[in-house]
């Protein structure tokens, strides 16, 4: 597995861990009725800020752990500079991720137009970003493996 593939896997793993924790946190808020009250926007805002901070910390920790594990197993500490193929794969991945997010976003807007509560659409947007990044990472992995 190349340096760039390993990075993608690291981001995917950290994304899944963070979103799992976030989902439990949001479930607690929902069960406490805080997502339906007048302060739902404030709760969502704070939860999103905590999510951003948590993602950064978890990603850094997992990146360090994966790098250490890789150095121990392979006895190499490689750091590949992105070349033209890596940049092309990144571009295709971003394009697929953007299209995915756009589909989720339009679906959310349709729900909003049909009368869905604003806070759930906002929450859905956060999950849409997560799924879009998952699909972006998966696309990049497939392109690395299948060839591009």
């Amino acid at each position: 597995m190349s340096y760039h593939e390993r990075n993608i896997v690291t981001y995917l793993i950290s994304g899944i861990i963070v979103m799992t924790i976030y989902s439990f946190y949001m479930l607690d808020l929902y069960q406490a009725g805080l997502l339906d009250g007048p302060d739902a926007g404030i709760e969502l805002g704070w939860s999103a800020l905590k999510l951003i901070g948590g993602s950064i910390i978890v990603t850094v920790v997992i990146s360090v752990l994966v790098s250490i594990a890789n150095a121990i197993i392979t006895k190499e500490s490689d750091f590949d500079k992105a070349d033209e193929r890596d940049k092309l794969i990144d571009l295709v991945g971003m394009k697929v991720g953007f299209i995915t997010f756009s589909i989720f976003f339009v679906t959310g807007m349709i729900w909003l137009a049909l009368g869905a509560p604003m806070q759930y659409i906002l929450l859905g947007s956060i999950y849409a970003m997560f799924f879009a990044s998952l699909i972006e990472g998966a696309t990049r992995l497939v392109l690395y493996r299948r060839g591009f």
Binding site: S2, K81, R85, G147
Partner: peptide, 10 residues
């Protein structure tokens, strides 16, 4: 040539 080994493999 200044690329990664994986690019040469591909």
């Amino acid at each position: 040539v200044g690329v990664s080994r994986q690019t040469i493999v591909a």
